[in-house]
Structure formats: structure tokens, C-alpha cells
Design a protein around this nucleic acid. Sequence first.
DNA 1: AGTTTCAGCGTACAACTGTACGCTTAATTT
DNA 2: AAATTAAGCGTACAGTTGTACGCTGAAACT
Lengths: 202, 202
Amino acid sequence: MNRQQQKLQTRQKIVDAAFTLLDENKSFTAISLREVAREAGIAPTSFYRHFADINELGLTLVDESGLALRQLMRKARQRIQKGGSVIAISVHTFMEFITKNRNVFRLLLREHTGTSAEFRAAVMREIQYFTEELSDYVESHLQLPADIAHMQAEAMVRLVFSAGADALDSDPTAVETIANRLIIQLRFIQLGAFSYHQRDKS
Amino acid sequence: MNRQQQKLQTRQKIVDAAFTLLDENKSFTAISLREVAREAGIAPTSFYRHFADINELGLTLVDESGLALRQLMRKARQRIQKGGSVIAISVHTFMEFITKNRNVFRLLLREHTGTSAEFRAAVMREIQYFTEELSDYVESHLQLPADIAHMQAEAMVRLVFSAGADALDSDPTAVETIANRLIIQLRFIQLGAFSYHQRDKS
DNA sequence: AGTTTCAGCGTACAACTGTACGCTTAATTT
DNA sequence: AAATTAAGCGTACAGTTGTACGCTGAAACT
């Protein structure tokens, strides 16, 4: 087999192993190089052929997670084209994602408040993509000035991530409850930003 | 000296040592019993005279942190008696607290999304106190039905904690900016919940 | 065909971990 | 005064960690 392909394949095995280890009771900072190697089926020292550091692996995972989320956003936007509530569809898409990719979302959540400033910054960057895309949407579709649109988008993303954290610990029926409450709370923000804007103009 | 007092004193040394170690780069799950003992100035094995487990220490820290936050709430409510914006005063009190007790808030943040289900539950309980007290306030002062008041309070607390997380990584001037944005975003929710309620009635 | 490259392995080591066990010593009880 | 209690210590041990070093064997190149 091609050597390059082979290398990429084991690299993927490492990434997959890391995501597998990132379960309910293990944060990325807490997993050891040796555990990852064991799970990936390689020698501990072979790890270094792919990543200089365990941190480099971590940042890769955050990047991949962010990418997955952005792809999700696109999918949600496509669904909205066909009509329906923007908020409700977005929330359901999001909840579907985190229940199907628990460890991906867990990684983002944990490293967002984690112990590595580098990781925190990486996650915040991914969240900012989220916020800015939503901000653009709000600005153009709801006809709000940029600053208000941005605050609205930021608040919404905060709520969504926070509710997502709760959803991770809940069974499917509880997730549905959380989603429904979240939808109403997002409407609060939407309505509130609008009336704040109206009041400001007069 | 009294033996009981002496014991309580070293116990406090352990607690203080743990909070000291809980700095920017160290989560509670990541600190070792030996580190705590070293910082507290006792032998590693002496730790067990005070806590059965390192987890027992952790839950103690969460409890103490929650207590500190509840005391803060009372202080904020007292200040509000004298008049002024409820939201603005609460936000400023909160920000003052987390900048003066960084590690206390850090503990709550990290364990909220941490790897121990027990710790997560403990933190969520503390957050719920927050939410419920605020919910009662909203219900009685803004004349909203209980369910809407609760959703409003929950959303507000989510926003406050999320903004608090950002504030931890920021310098004083950035904290001020975050606080001001947060105040507006909380107004969004307040206004939004009100018009959601109005609309619902008709 | 001969040479070079390099992914992966095995061994090795020092550092650190939690905690079992028994001792000391001073406060407390009898 | 004698006996008991218990906070704190020191030693010890097995387990895990990251990573330095040199080797192997097959793919890639000349």
C-alpha cells in the first residue's frame, strides 16, 4: 500500500481513538498519550510520528469538531429554505447533532472552560464563527443594526451551548423538553432585541 | 491548643491549598492528593484524616463556592433596595465577585462541564438555587406567570454564567465591555418575555 | 539493483501517583 | 498518674506517565 495513505490511515486511527476515549468520564486533558496509543493499536512512541505533542492532537480534534458543526449549520440553513421556523429548525438540528456526536460536543464544552488557554482560545474561535454567521443572518433577515444583531446572536449562541450542555446529561424525552424551552427562550431574545431597537429609535 | 480546633485548622489549610492550586492551568480533577498535601504543608497520608477521598474534598469546595455565591446574591439584593436598575446592579456585583474570587468561579465553571457526574450534579444544584431565587423575584416583581418567569430566569442565569466565563480570561476594561453587553442582553430577555406574555394573552 | 527514507516498535528510565502499614507524640479521658 | 485516643509522619510499593534512543523492514527513489 501507498506509504502516504498508510500514514494518514493511522493518523485517523489516532484521532478516532481520542474521540472514543473522550467519553462521559474523561476529558482530553486527562487522557494520556499512552491511552490514545493503546486504543489506536500503536506503540506509544509511534505517536510522535504524527503529532509533536498531545496538544497538537487536541487542537486537531477541536478543529475537526468545529468543522463538523459548521457543516451542520449549512444543513440547517438548507432546511430553512423550504420554510418553517428558523429558530425551531435550528434548535432541533443542533440537538440532533449533539445527541449523535456526543463526544464531539463534549470536547468543545470541556475545552471551552478547560485548563489550557490555547484550547480555550481555539474553542472560542469556533463559537465565534457560529455567532458571526448567525449575526449576519439576523442583520439581513430581521433588519436590525449590526451592533444589536450581534448582541442578539451572541446571546442566542450562549443559550444554545448552555442548553446543549444540559442535554448531554439527559435522556431523549428530557432533551425534547430542553429543546422546547430553549426555543421559547430564543424567541424572548428575538422579541426583546426587536423591542429594544424600536424603543431606541423613538 | 484544643485538638478539635487544630483539626479544623488543618482541614481549612487543605481547602485553602486546593483553591490556591485551582489556578488558570489546573482543574480540580487534575490536581493530585500529593500536590494538595504539599501546598497545605502536611504529609500525603495525613490527608485521609480529613477526607476519605479527593472527591470528598472536591464536593466540599463546590459547596463552599455555592455558599459564597448565595451570600453575594443577598448582598446584591440589599443594594437594589436603595433603588437603581436591578439588572445592572446584579451584573456588576457578579462581575466584581468573579474577578475577586477567580478560582471559586473557575471551579464551578469547570466542574459544571467536568468529567465527574457527581460534580456536575453538585454544580447544577448550585446554579438551580440561583435560577429559582431569580425566578421568584421575576414572578413577583414583573407580574409574570410562573412558567414564563422560570424560563426568563433560566435564560438569564445561562447568559450570566456564560459571560462570566469570558470575563475570567479578560482584563478589567474588557470585563466592563462584557458587563455592558450582558446588561443589554438581559434586557432583551426581560423585554422579550414580557411581550411573549402579552402576545400569548390575546 | 542498490540506496535512502521513515513509520512503527521495544527497551529503558526517572518522575509521579494513590495508599497500606506502623510509629510517634501530644491532647484527652479515666 | 495511668491509659486511651487520634492527628500527623515516614517508609514502602506497585502502577502509570512522557519520552530518549536505537533498531527493523518495507516503501520510495536513483
